[in-house]
Design a protein around this nucleic acid. Structure first.
Lengths: 209, 209
DNA sequence: AAAAATCTGTTGCAAAAACAACAAAAAAAT
DNA sequence: ATTTTTTTGTTGTTTTTGCAACAGATTTTT
C-alpha cells in the first residue's frame, strides 16, 4: 500500500495545531452531518464508521465504510445531493476535524503535523479515489450475486485469505450493496447450495478457484 | 466551480515540459487501456471520452464519462479489477499524458505548466472525488426509475434548465446507469405517460416541481 | 446515392429482485 | 438474569428487470 499512514505522524499533531480538532465518539454516535458549506475534512484515527444515506422511501444505504486512516467529510461532496448524509460510528472512534481551506495555509504554530498533512494531501485523496472506484465497480455489477462475489473477492484480497469476517451484519451488507436483504439472503443461500462459498456466522470462505 | 481549469494554463505547457506527452485522437479511438502498472495520469484537454468496461457476460458499462478538463488514468485504480478497462474517444479528443510519480519531481526545464499542475494536483483530484461521489449516489438508487430521475436532475442542475440534451445515445445511457436498455426504455415511457418528463429525440424536459 | 451499421421503440416471456411478514436466534440493554 | 431490541433465516406473492427478438428510423460508411 503506497499511501500515507496518518497515524505515523499523528503524534506530531499533539503539539497544538490551531487548525484541527480532535474528538472521541462512542459507538452509534453521529460523527458529522454533511451540510456542504463548511468544507469539512475528517480523518478517522481509530475505529470504524459508516457514511449513511436514507432516501425518500426510507431505504438506508451505507454509502461508504471507513476504517483507520480513512478520510471523509463534506468537502468530498458537491451540492447535488438532496438526501441527508451523515457519518455514524460503528465502533468507538477517534476523529480529527479540519477545514479544507485552512489546510492550504500554514497554521500559527507552523506545526509539523499541519505541514505533513498538507504535503501528503494529494496522495491521501488519490487513495480515496481508488477506493471509490472499486466501490463503483461493485455497484455497477448487474446482479446481487455478482455484487456479493465481487465484494467477497475484495475482502479476500484484502485479507490475503479465502476466509474472512464480514465487517457488517448481513442486514448492513445488503444496505452496502444496495439490494434487498431478503433477496440477498436467498442469493447467499444459493451460493452456498451451489458450493461457491461456505458461511459460518459472518465468516465467509470462498470455495472457488 | 472552484476547481482549476487545466486549459487556463495549457499554453504554458507548450514550451516543452519533458515529462508530458500530448496526443490527438479521432472519434472512437482507444485513448488508453488501464494496465495498472504505469501510474498514468491523463488530462482531457478537449473533446469527450468514456471509461468502458466489459464484464464476463459481455455487458458493457460506461464507468465514467469525461469532458473537457477531466482527469483520468490508471493511477486512480487499484489492482482489484480483473475486467479490462479502457478509455474511448466519443468525439475527437486532445489528451495530455503524464506519469504520476514524475509530477512530484520537477522537470528538466522547470516549466511553469509542470509546476502549476503539481501545485493544483490535490484540487484536481478532489474535484474528481466529488464527481465519483455523485456517481455512487446515482448507482445506489434502487430502481431504474430513480436512476433516470437522479441522472436527469444532475443534468438539469448542470445546465441550469429543466431542458437538456443527453450526452449519450439511449443505448449508452442504459450502459451508464448499469441497467437493461429495453427495461429503461419501458421506464422512460412510463415517466412520459405519467407526465414526469417530456422527450423529443435526446432532449429531455423535466415537468415536475 | 446506396448500402451497411447503429439506434430506437416495442413486446412477450423468463428470471431476478423487492416487498411483506413472521418465527427463531442472537445480541444488547436494563 | 431477564427483558428488549436487533439480526437471521425463510417463504409466498408482486413488481421490476433482464433477455430475445424484430421492424422502422436514423446515422455512418462506402
Amino acid at each position: 500500500m503506497d499511501f500515507l499512514s496518518v497515524s505515523s505522524f499523528i503524534k506530531d499533531y499533539e503539539d497544538h495545531c490551531d487548525k484541527v480538532q480532535h474528538k472521541h465518539f462512542k459507538k452509534n454516535e453521529t460523527i458529522t452531518t454533511y451540510i456542504a458549506k463548511r468544507n469539512q475534512v475528517c480523518i478517522l484515527v481509530n475505529g470504524e464508521a459508516d457514511l449513511i444515506r436514507y432516501d425518500y422511501n426510507g431505504n438506508k444505504t451505507i454509502v461508504e465504510h471507513f476504517t483507520k486512516n480513512d478520510i471523509f467529510g463534506e468537502v468530498f461532496y458537491s451540492i447535488t445531493t438532496n438526501n441527508e448524509l451523515f457519518v455514524q460510528a460503528r465502533q468507538d472512534c477517534d476523529v480529527i476535524f479540519l477545514v479544507y481551506d485552512n489546510l492550504k495555509n500554514k497554521c500559527k504554530s507552523n506545526c509539523k503535523f499541519h505541514q505533513t498533512l498538507s504535503d501528503n494531501l494529494a496522495e491521501l485523496i488519490l487513495h480515496k479515489v481508488t477506493i471509490l472506484n472499486s466501490r463503483i465497480e461493485l455497484l455497477t455489477k448487474r446482479s446481487t450475486r455478482d455484487k456479493l462475489i465481487g465484494y467477497f473477492s475484495i475482502l479476500s484480497t484484502r485479507n490475503l485469505s479465502k476466509s474472512f469476517k464480514l465487517p457488517f451484519s448481513l442486514t448492513d451488507l445488503a444496505d452496502y450493496l444496495s439490494v434487498d436483504r431478503s433477496a440477498m439472503m436467498r442469493e447467499l443461500k444459493s451460493l452456498r447450495d451451489e458450493g461457491f462459498i461456505e458461511k459460518t456466522g459472518n465468516v465467509i470462505t470462498l470455495l472457488y478457484r
